[in-house]
Each structure stands twice: as structure tokens, then as C-alpha cells.
Design a protein around this nucleic acid. Structure first.
Lengths: 122, 122
DNA sequence: ATTATATTTAAGTATTTGCTTAAATAATAA
DNA sequence: TTATTATTTAAGCAAATACTTAAATATAAT
């Protein structure tokens, strides 16, 4: 059963139905995208993704740079890894993080917004 | 007092300090940006922003398109309005939402990701 | 084997989020 | 004025989030 909230004269029911259908048809795309964007849209994780995009770091590097506990960082990284934004490789006991190649396009696109705001001098 | 988690040989303390400083110097920019990105990175709000960017709608239009309650929609729109992503204008009893001109650049940049995924035929 | 190091995982908890329902505002129409 | 319509706001609540501390894993070094 479809609920209708709009009863005013001016409304364009046809257009509303069209958009409803379009959004339903693309629900998966919208959900996947909002998932990725929402994950990166967090103060800590935006910095983590930005850092990883600059160069490879390990978990305790992030902890020192952001002045946070190692488990807190690890749990943020896990979320990024779960949706495939980052991947890891081990060198002895150290685990390094990098942007997953297939996600570099979308990540770079979002990080463009950071580049617009800050100047990097490292 | 600064906490140090990394004690391994290989680490580059200078680089870590540089990045820590850089992120601290740009804390405001990162926070503002993650705020906006995080807000748009929500299933409902990504669709709302996308719809508003397509054309002007009122609250009950959104409610019908997304098949959600009017108060639920209104509260999402309020969040978008609070950070200045959208603005409103009233025509009699109806309140229409549009993208704030100064935020169009950033909104369009994020919505590019939607355009990459879906084809619009309305 | 034992110890140390790097990281993850689990359990606990306070805060935030996103809805619901009901009430409050605001503007129009009768 | 009174009723209707569009929207917002408030209160309540279940679920999700983001930390904490402690324990578990995994690898390396002694």
C-alpha cells in the first residue's frame, strides 16, 4: 500500500511517481554509495583515508598522528576495510594500509574536496 | 602530553610529527568537510540532496517519493539546512527546498558519484 | 620455549541517530 | 472566527556508533 502525504492542488503526481520509481530502481546504487560516503564522512576516517592516500602507514602510525588509542584506530580501519575502501599487507609484525586500487577513483574524487581546502607541505 | 604508540625501529618519527601538525593545523577544514560529507552519506539524505539538485520539491513530495513520514523527512531536511547545504522558500503554505548556491559546487561534486552510477530518464 | 611487539577482537558503556506519535506553528480558506 | 493544510518541533525509544579496557592472535626476537 502506497502512502500519499501530498494532497495539494499544485503537486505533480506523475513526476512524484516517476522519481519514486527511479529511486527504487537504483536503490542498490544509492545505498552502496551512501555507505561509502557516510563512512568517509567521519572526522577520524576522513583523516585516515586522506593519510593512506598520501602514503602507506601502519596502525600505530595513525594512532600517533591522530593521538588516539590503537584499538580505536584499528576499529575505524576495519570498517574501511569491510566496505573495501582500504586493503592491507603485512611486513613482519607490521600491517600497512593502502587504498584498494578499484576504489581509488571514488576515494580520490572525495579527497578532491580536501585538496580544495588545505595545502600540503610534507 | 603526547602519547606514542609506535616504538618500532623502522618508523619515521619526523614524518609522523609533520602529519600530526598538518592535521592539527587543518582540523577545522577536516571537521567541516567530514560534517558535510557525513550528512550526505546517509541513504535518505543522499536521495534528498539528489532530488533537490534535480528540481525543487516540498516536504510532502519527498515523503511520497521516499515513502516515509513527513516528520522523518522534515528532520533530515533540518540537518541539511543546519549545515547550510539546503535553503528554503515559502509559497503560501508550501515550503520548497533548494541547494544553497554557495554549496552547489561541493554538492555537485559529491553527486557526480551518483551520476556515475545511475541513468536519469525523467 | 619464552618474551616482546603489532594488531585485532570482545565486552562494556555513554552518546548519537533516526525513527515514531503527538502537539505546536504558521498560513490559507471558508 | 473556525477549520484546513503544510510543516516543524518535542518527547520517547530502539538501534547504531565510537570510544574504553582487557583479552586474544600472530609474528618475531632472545
Amino acid at each position: 500500500m502506497k502512502t500519499i502525504s501530498c494532497i495539494r492542488e499544485k503537486k505533480d503526481q506523475y513526476k512524484i511517481d516517476q522519481y519514486e520509481q527511479l529511486l527504487k530502481n537504483n536503490a542498490t546504487e544509492f545505498n552502496q554509495l551512501s555507505n561509502i560516503v557516510g563512512l568517509i564522512g567521519n572526522g577520524v576516517r576522513l583523516k585516515l583515508v586522506w593519510l593512506i592516500n598520501q602514503e602507506q602507514f601502519c596502525v600505530c602510525d595513525f594512532a600517533d598522528i591522530l593521538q588516539m588509542s590503537v584499538p580505536a584506530i584499528s576499529q575505524h580501519l576495519r570498517k574501511l576495510k569491510d566496505v573495501g575502501i582500504v586493503e592491507t599487507f603485512r611486513d613482519k609484525q607490521t600491517i600497512y594500509y593502502s587504498i584498494t586500487p578499484t576504489k581509488k577513483l571514488i576515494v580520490n574524487h572525495i579527497l578532491d574536496l580536501v585538496s580544495d581546502e588545505i595545502a600540503v607541505t610534507i
